Simulated scan of single mutants.
Amino acid sequence: MVKMDFSEHWIKLLMLCVKTVSYSILINRSKTTIFFNKATCEETKNHIKTALGVPEIVQYERVFKLRFFPDCSILEATNSTSGSHAWRSILKGRDVLLQGARWRVGSGESISVWNDAWLLSLDHPKILSQVVPGFEDAKVSNLINPISRRWEVDLIRGLFPPEEAEVILSIPLSNLPMKDKCPKIAEVWDDIQGFEFRQLLNFQSFKDLVAFVHTKVKNLELMAMVMWTVWHRRNQIKVSSQDFPASQVLPQAKQALTDFKHLNASLPPQQDASGNPLARTHWSPPPRDCFKVNFDGASFSDLGKAGLGVVIRDCNGRVVASLLE
């Protein structure tokens, strides 16, 4: 911005916005407009609008959705000859994002078999074989048995070449139909050295993942702290209007891990009433044909809200159900 001869006052205002809120701006002479994130305070909005001399776009999502993609999401929206420069710019940004995005298969109802990137392959995340007549509009859910929640092996091997069929069958499925997700925090794991395996390997259970990280990557503590920070970030966004950029997850997790180790090293060992060291408590699986329910809750008195988490495991320690309210 300095090289482009922007004024120092404007740069300071813009950098303040970058550090605290997200925004979008279209510079096109007299057509320049700006859109602010909901977390932006009115004082900051007024400063920036006054410095730039541009109007603010209100009801940004509602305007574009009703006009350009009323019956689908932004991911399926198509270009329009009547679209403004702002709308075409949004689509170009969407296309750049999708080049590196991958669907995580849940129910499969939102994922197009032929058009979306959903395979666990870095080189070929999309189906490369020719579309089979009669299956042009097939969703990934059509390849999953709705009762057993398992892949329809015979159907898959009949539709796809052996190599693609094996890649599809290697994708793990949940025992319950979950919502398909296009991950938004993939960059968090991409920045952790040693976690490149997540795009290439599949694990049948969380226990297998932990065992792999413990023996191969040898960075289990950081993985656990990153998971906690991701969970904490999700709660912060859900229960408050505070901004928590995904780019801050890894630095905050590393700092929290450093603080945790420092405090643990400085604390004396815990003892019982007799002065004997307390034995560490370990989770143990329930007896055969039984289930164990673990739960935890938290209350937020300032917000008048509470949260509850429940996880149910079988005798092998596998998670059979979970709840978050």
Rank of each mutant, 00 (worst) to 15 (best):
A186W: 15
L122G: 02
N145T: 00
H262R: 13
W151I: 00
I144M: 10
P172K: 06
Q242W: 14
K92L: 08
R280D: 11
D296T: 06
D259E: 07
W228P: 00
S22E: 12
L173F: 11
W151A: 01
Y23N: 05
S241T: 04
C290R: 14
I312N: 07
I74V: 07
D243T: 13
D71W: 06
I147P: 02
G53C: 10
I25C: 05
V249N: 02
P70I: 05
V310G: 00
V226A: 10
S7P: 05
T33E: 11
E164C: 09
A265P: 03
D243L: 15
L169W: 06
N145R: 01
V310W: 02
K19S: 14
Q99L: 04
G53M: 09
S73G: 08
E43Q: 13
T215N: 02
I25G: 03
D71G: 00
D289L: 05
L122Y: 05
R280G: 10
L97R: 12
I168Q: 01
A186D: 09
Q59S: 05
A273W: 13
N46T: 10
L14N: 15
V213P: 07
Q270A: 13
D314T: 11
I11C: 06
M227Q: 10
F68Q: 01
S24F: 08
G108L: 02
F35T: 11
W231D: 08
F6D: 01
N276W: 13
H282F: 07
E109V: 02
P277C: 03
M227A: 08
S82Q: 03
G93I: 09
H232R: 11
W189A: 03
K179M: 13
K261H: 02
L128F: 10
F195V: 00
W231N: 04
F160C: 04
P125L: 08
G297R: 04
P146G: 02
L66Y: 08
C182N: 10
L173Y: 09
L66W: 04
W228K: 00
D208K: 11
N79K: 13
